[in-house]
Simulated assay, not measured.
Amino acid sequence: MEFEARTSTEAALREYKAGLGLFTEKMPKLAEQFNAFTKECFKEGVLSKKEKQLIALGISLYSQDEYCIIYHTKGCLDQGCSEQEILEAVGVTVAFGGGMSMSQAVTLVQKCVQELNQLKQ
């Protein structure tokens, strides 16, 4: 299955990291506080890191945030999620987000899973 997108998954991740780096140079205190907050939010707790990434992916899809969709799809895979687990989480999101969420799921999420899994090989 081939999908065309405006940029590759890997390029989008690099673009996000570069933007975050530039922002951090310009606003170091704010970036430091944001990074500390998100690090705390995503650490292992009663919910696993894996479950938290699945939640974040669902919220990213629902809010139509392409960079976060890519970032949290990678986070899901990095935490050991299978494609089936990701797609089930997507299904729950689509139940709430309808066509908007489905359009990102059948294009961007599937493209990310495909590209990121190829990078692992």
Rank of each mutant, 00 (worst) to 15 (best):
H72V: 14
L61H: 01
L77Q: 01
E83I: 07
V90M: 09
H72L: 08
G80D: 10
G75K: 00
L61G: 02
I69G: 05
S60L: 00
S63I: 05
H72G: 05
V90W: 04
V94P: 00
Y67K: 14
V90G: 01
V94G: 00
Y67N: 07
V92T: 04
V92Q: 11
S82I: 00
E85G: 12
V90T: 01
Q79C: 13
E66Y: 07
D78W: 02
G75W: 01
G75P: 12
F96G: 08
S60Y: 03
D78M: 07
L61P: 03
E66W: 10
G97C: 11
A89N: 04
L77E: 07
S82T: 15
D78I: 09
G58E: 13
G80K: 10
V92C: 07
T93V: 09
E83D: 11
G80V: 01
D78P: 10
I59K: 12
F96C: 07
A89S: 14
D65T: 14
Q79Y: 05
C68N: 13
G58P: 04
C81T: 12
C68E: 11
T73A: 03
Q64I: 00
Y62E: 13
I69E: 05
Q64D: 11
E88A: 13
C68Y: 14
F96V: 15
I59V: 15
H72A: 09
V94E: 11
K74F: 14
Y62L: 15
L77A: 10
G80A: 04
L87Q: 10
Y67V: 12
A95M: 09
V92P: 01
T93P: 01
Q79T: 10
L61D: 03
L77Y: 04
L61E: 02
V90Y: 06
I59S: 10
G97I: 12
I86W: 01
Q84T: 15
S82W: 11
C68W: 12
I59D: 02
I69Y: 13
I69W: 02
I59T: 11
H72T: 14
E83Q: 13
Y67R: 13
I69A: 07
A95G: 11
C81Y: 01
H72F: 08
I59A: 13
Q64R: 14
C68T: 13
K74S: 08
K74M: 14
G97D: 03
I70E: 06
H72K: 06
E66T: 11
L61S: 03
Q64G: 12
E85K: 06
V90E: 02
Q79S: 12
D65N: 13
Y71R: 14
L61W: 05
Y62I: 08
V92N: 00
Q84V: 15
Y62T: 08
E85V: 00
Y67W: 05
Q64C: 05
K74G: 08
Y67I: 13
L87C: 03
G97P: 01
Y71T: 12
T93S: 14
Q64W: 10
I86Q: 07
I69D: 14
Y71C: 09
C76V: 12
Q84D: 15
F96D: 07
Y71M: 08
F96T: 09
S82C: 01
L61R: 02
Y67L: 06
